[in-house]
Computed example of a mutant assay.
Amino acid sequence: MSDLVVRDSNGAQLNEGDSVQVIKDLKVKGSSTTLKRGTVFKNIHLTDDAEEIECRSAQIKGLVLKTCFVKKV
């Protein structure tokens, strides 16, 4: 997994434990919750897919976001 490069919507490289910000309102599948633009997630976890990251949220467990919807803070 060390050769996997994960990039955000602006092309900045994301690393394990970075903080990211949502760049547009997102409806969460399987939930009535909407992630608002500007929501910050700290301490992200990289997955085996270069286009997906795992985030922790108090409202939603096991949240996976596409990297095209986040930017590095």
Rank of each mutant, 00 (worst) to 15 (best):
Met1Pro: 14
Leu4Ser: 10
Val6Asn: 05
Val6Tyr: 06
Arg7Cys: 03
Ser9Asp: 05
Ser9Ala: 13
Asn10Tyr: 03
Ala12Ile: 00
Ala12Glu: 01
Gln13Asp: 05
Gln13Asn: 09
Gln13Lys: 07
Leu14Asp: 01
Leu14Phe: 01
Asn15Arg: 09
Glu16Asn: 07
Gly17Gln: 02
Val20Leu: 05
Gln21His: 02
Gln21Cys: 11
Gln21Leu: 02
Gln21Ala: 08
Val22Gly: 02
Val22Thr: 09
Ile23Phe: 03
Ile23Asn: 04
Lys24Leu: 15
Lys24Asp: 09
Lys24Trp: 12
Asp25Gln: 07
Asp25Met: 10
Leu26Arg: 06
Lys27Leu: 14
Val28Lys: 05
Val28Gln: 04
Val28Met: 09
Lys29Ser: 15
Lys29Ile: 11
Gly30Arg: 07
Ser31Pro: 15
Ser32Glu: 11
Ser32Ala: 13
Arg37Pro: 08
Gly38Arg: 12
Gly38Thr: 11
Gly38Ser: 14
Thr39His: 15
Thr39Met: 07
Thr39Arg: 12
Val40Gln: 01
Phe41Arg: 01
Lys42Leu: 05
Lys42Met: 05
Lys42Arg: 11
Asn43Cys: 05
Leu46Ser: 13
Leu46Glu: 04
Leu46Phe: 10
Asp48Cys: 09
Asp48Lys: 11
Asp49Ser: 12
Asp49Asn: 08
Ala50Phe: 15
Glu51Met: 08
Glu52Ile: 13
Ile53Leu: 09
Ile53Phe: 05
Ser57Asn: 14
Ala58Phe: 10
Ala58Ile: 14
Gln59Pro: 04
Gln59Asp: 15
Gln59Ser: 10
Ile60Trp: 06
Ile60His: 06
Lys61Phe: 08
Gly62Leu: 04
Gly62Asn: 11
Leu63Cys: 02
Leu63Val: 02
Leu63Met: 06
Val64Asp: 10
Val64Gln: 12
Leu65Trp: 00
Leu65Pro: 00
Lys66Asp: 06
Thr67Asn: 00
Cys68Arg: 14
Cys68Gln: 12
Phe69Tyr: 13
Val70Pro: 00
Lys71Pro: 06
Lys71His: 11
Lys71Gln: 08
Lys72Gln: 07
Lys72Gly: 06
